[in-house]
């Protein structure tokens, strides 16, 4: 792919802390390489801001290889930017051309309060996991992998659901700020496997209750979550979650 450089206009959300009302600031970045990642472009901008004695832009990132779920920028109206099934860290500047204007915002949801600039607090997801996103197994010798036969389709679907990295793009994209795609991936992952069986009913009831306490909206099946998910989690998981919840809610005493 041909290498080129570009000059860009960035409109970035700046907010000192969770209390302060934020605003957009405009920055001009020059000589950006098409081979840089989107976050490297922010690194270049931040180095410049530091040189000028200004506060660098705070943003979340960790692995920078698309698997940790930390990066969380809402770029030109789309979580993780324009590419399909992609994280912000894996977005490369060849997606843009010289003279482009890019608007970068934090995830917007009351359950994800802004901590600073583009960093939001996603610990609500952690609390949902803590409410039941695990299996309780006594420790001991590891069981042979082939000891419990599992249908291939179920194993595949469980694996696809387990691919969720909990980045929160689904919440950011949803008009209702609903966490249902995230929650349904976590519930489906375990509901499809025999190891998830013993805690199956309590898990879904407790996790939905925690999701509601965190202030996420309800699902209206618009499909925006699925369209932006970097791991292509299927919206079918939400329908499965509904079946799990209704099945448990109608019988658990």
């Amino acid at each position: 792919m041909e290498h080129y450089t570009m000059n860009l206009t960035l409109k970035v959300w700046r907010q000192k802390n969770s209390q302060e009302k934020g605003r957009f600031e405009t920055y001009q970045v020059k000589n950006i390489s098409s081979e840089m990642s989107f976050l490297e472009m922010f690194d270049v901008l931040n180095e410049e801001l530091i040189r000028e004695g200004k506060e660098p832009i705070a943003f979340d990132h960790d692995c920078r290889e698309g698997i940790c779920g930390m990066c969380s920028m809402y770029i030109n109206g789309k979580p993780h930017g324009p590419w399909h099934a992609n994280t912000t860290c894996q977005l490369h500047m060849r997606a843009y051309k010289d003279g482009d204007t890019i608007v970068v915002e934090p995830w917007r949801a009351n359950a994800f309060p802004v901590v600073k600039d583009l960093v939001v607090d996603r610990s609500s997801f952690d609390r949902i996991i803590q409410a039941g996103g695990y299996i309780s197994v006594n420790t001991g010798n590891a069981v042979d992998a082939n000891a419990i036969p599992i249908e291939k389709d179920k194993a595949d679907n469980a694996f696809a659901a387990a691919a969720c990295i909990g980045c929160g793009a689904c919440v950011a994209a949803c008009k209702n700020s609903s966490a249902m795609l995230f929650l349904s991936a976590k519930v489906s992952h375990l509901a499809l496997l025999p190891q998830g069986g013993p805690e199956r009913k309590g898990r879904v009831l407790n996790m939905v209750a925690q999701m509601d306490r965190e202030g996420f909206g309800a699902c209206t099946n618009t499909g925006a979550c699925e369209a932006v998910c970097p791991k292509e989690i299927s919206i079918t998981n939400i329908a499965r979650l509904n079946a799990e919840y209704i099945g448990a809610g109608l019988v658990v005493e």
Binding site: N110, A173, S178, V228
Partner: peptide
């Protein structure tokens, strides 16, 4: 659902993620 997002976006996802009528 509307109250779950107090501060909206400057640029919206719009029809890129879902049908307008949904």
């Amino acid at each position: 659902n509307r109250s779950a997002r107090s501060v909206g976006y400057a640029v919206n996802l719009g029809n890129r993620g879902s049908k307008w009528y949904s």
